[in-house]
């Protein structure tokens, strides 16, 4: 009996030792501890985003560069319109530089840092796939030794919505280090991600609202396109209950505006305008077309925008923007 208790005690001690060791080692990755940013801004305003970071160095390795990625709409051209710096009492301060395209992350399978970051962290919960990860690295490297925890900030000063479009978007930020590149091991997790706490709202501007946060009744893929692209227009009948809820077939009714001041209307309920349900009972209907051919525009004409409704087979029920009588509007542009 005595012997049994001793063995049990040994096991208990070992378990406790492993637990304590585990807790100590689990702390050894970079962490975003806070994010300071406004809830709103205006188009073209330079906004400061401060990302609070903590870098424990209880492992033993490096020196590695601090990696910092931010997820922004492609139209903002963040790489050109942002200045990123870091500051830490222990590490000093410096610039975060864009990672050269020929520097590839470990375990990235040949992907670039932005592509690998997108693969790991995705679209940050945004509903339109028109976002990009822009990835920076610190100008100085730091070692993973000494048992210190460095705290500091990465500061982004960025001109938001440089494309002139009012935007609702979930921004996201990630940190890691060049030696571990978004990996975990027994010593900890070497990355941390933090998104804007709510949808960041950029108002003003002359463009159309780009809403990455809220489901839209209709979406166009690619989000940025010209009349010589192939576009897919999708109507999502699950977003809100519309007058088309009981219809089994829906059609596109659209008017094109051309650069020579003409309008071309295609509002017929035929195979040409029929929107096909993406899967059975999905209530999501899609039409894919080449705008130039769809509207029969001449070679000399350029379609600048379209206004459209979704209709029933009889053409008697029309659903417009925000489930109102106003048409949806899509402007053909690349920026």
């Amino acid at each position: 009996m005595n012997s049994f208790l001793q063995i049990k005690g040994k096991r208990l001690w070992r378990a406790c030792a492993f637990l304590v060791l585990g807790i100590m080692l689990a702390c050894c990755g970079e962490e975003i501890t806070g994010l300071e940013m406004p809830d709103t801004a205006t188009v073209g305003q330079t906004v400061t985003f401060k990302v609070n970071i903590s870098i424990p160095t209880a492992g033993d390795g490096g020196p590695d560069y601090l990696i910092f990625g931010m997820l922004v709409p492609k139209g903002w051209k963040g790489a050109q319109n942002a200045v990123v710096t870091y500051n830490s009492q222990a590490l000093g301060g410096g610039a975060m530089n864009l990672i050269p395209s020929n520097a590839l992350p470990k375990n990235g399978g040949g992907l670039s840092w932005p592509a690998y970051t997108k693969k790991i962290f995705g679209n940050g919960g945004n509903l339109i796939d028109d976002m990009e990860w822009i990835v920076y690295q610190s100008e100085k490297a730091y070692p993973h030794s000494g048992g210190y925890t460095f705290t500091g900030d990465v500061t982004v000063k960025m001109k938001v919505a440089a494309d002139g479009n009012p935007t609702n978007v979930k921004l996201s930020f990630v940190i890691s280090d060049s030696g571990n590149a978004y990996t975990s091991d027994n010593n900890g997790t070497y990355y941390s991600q933090k998104g804007s706490p709510s949808c960041f709202e950029v108002t003003g501007g002359t463009g159309d609202l780009v809403d990455f946060c809220n489901p839209q009744l209709t979406t166009i893929d690619p989000p940025k396109s010209l009349d010589n692209d192939i576009v897919s227009l999708t109507f999502d009948g699950t977003v809100v209950e519309t007058d088309l809820k009981n219809e089994s077939e829906v059609y596109l009714c659209a008017t094109a505006y051309t650069n020579d001041g003409k309008t071309i209307k295609v509002c017929e309920q035929t195979d040409k305008t029929k929107m096909v349900q993406t899967s059975a009972n999905s209530k999501r209907y899609r039409a894919t077309f080449w705008p130039k051919a769809f509207f029969n525009a001449t070679d000399a004409q350029t379609i600048t925008k379209i206004e459209y409704y979704i209709t029933n087979k009889a053409g008697t029920v029309k659903v417009g923007y925000g489930n109102t009588a106003d048409p949806f509007v899509y402007t053909f542009k690349c920026g």
Binding site: P222, K224, S225, L226, N228, D229, I230, C334
Partner: peptide
Amino acid sequence: SPGCPNNSY
């Protein structure tokens, strides 16, 4: 890319 340069076919 027949339309926007970012759209590749």
